[in-house]
Design a protein around this nucleic acid. Structure first.
Lengths: 206, 206
DNA sequence: CAATTTTCTGATCAACTATTCAACATCCTA
DNA sequence: TAGGATGTTGAATAGTTGATCAGAAAATTG
């Protein structure tokens, strides 16, 4: 009935989101490798055929799940970064809200990691090798913008923006690593990261 | 014949290493998810039954493969770090040689990542959540030692050693990420990381 | 209420999975 | 060269995978 092909929505959007949530739960419980349609269906309390009915393909389900996760994470962080007045403050907010998201929704972060490091395109390119596309890594692009703006305004010193952005993003991701998150809350970890990168991005004193 | 159960070695150690190398190649070509025994056997030019003959289990093969990869990487880096006289120099050597390893043996690094982010213990704990064990992350332990020694000797300032070590390790791992390695060789990327973390670990000037 | 569309299930499918096993080949030793 | 250990294979095993299809159930429509 809809004029646009994309717009295929009904009351059973609820089903699709329910299946996606079951997918996230399954990825957390048994990981990507064992997250079969049967396992996902069991957790959703439905038959496997119903998944095939609502999603064209297994990869279609995976792709819509990761899309949901990326959008969730991005909107959470970007909303908070908007409030920063200086570039330095925006950088702080970026780091702290990213960690807050991980602490608040650990299952969503785990599911994101599971998909990114396991899924591959039909021509066998791993998802973690595709980070460059615009809608795949909106947060990385925002981080680069903050850093570049800070250099232009003189708030920050000289450094390679792409590398610094990846380093900061890597440090944020390391929060999930054991022996860190288990011993420390997101705010403390974030405060330490802010201290580290405040010095790293500052203009040289000489 | 051997008195120790471990010591079951013959001329067909060659077979085991051949199979492990085929596993590494398979992980690179099609990833962990699709790396079945049949695919590995095809690349090794043998039958799948022979893999089961030399390795008790599929997970046994995976575990011996990752063990090989970790030992390779660690000995490469540790050998070079030994030559450093100051803590700062050892830190530089750690960063640069880690990147050199990635640049020289990209397939081994990719295989390592594939296993770490996909494999799970029998009780469903992801390998990337086990980094704390001694033989699982010898490089992380060495990095912590360098940082702590530097703090004691006064070469470095104050910071959380565990977090700084994870941050540095994360930044090294980010080299594989697209839009970085493709545009830049390991030496240039390493020089930039050295610049960043030289400032981050230096004692405060105030 | 009747008719039509949408939603959902159980059964079925061929293709794959890891592992086992009997048989065969090769090697080393005595 | 005889004999026993080691190495290797093809076939068979039971189990799981993603996907399809006819038809039932439910919802929406007229």
């Amino acid at each position: 009935m809809s004029s646009r092909g994309e717009e295929q929505s009904f009351i059973s959007d609820a089903r699709r989101t329910q299946i996606i949530e079951a997918t996230i739960a399954t990825l957390n419980e048994i990981g990507f490798v064992r997250a079969s349609l049967a396992q996902i269906a069991k957790r959703a309390g439905i038959s496997t055929a119903l998944i095939s009915y609502h999603f064209g393909d297994r990869m279609d389900l995976i792709n819509r799940t990761i899309q949901t996760l990326i959008e969730d994470n991005a909107s959470f962080v970007l909303e908070r970064v908007k409030g920063g007045r200086s570039c330095r403050e925006r950088l702080h907010l970026f780091i702290l809200s990213s960690l807050e998201y991980q602490e608040t929704y650990p299952e969503r972060f785990v599911a994101l990691v599971e998909i990114i490091f396991n899924a591959r395109t039909p021509d066998n390119i791993p998802y973690y090798m595709l980070n460059d596309e615009v809608d795949a890594e909106p947060l990385l692009l925002e981080l680069r913008t903050i850093l570049r703006d800070g250099q232009v305004s003189g708030e920050f010193g000289e450094f390679n923006v792409v590398i610094m952005a990846n380093t900061i993003q890597g440090a944020i991701g390391e929060y999930a690593s054991p022996g860190v998150a288990s011993r420390m809350d997101a705010a403390s970890y974030g405060a330490e990261l802010v201290r580290i990168f405040d010095r790293a991005v500052s203009p040289s004193s000489d």
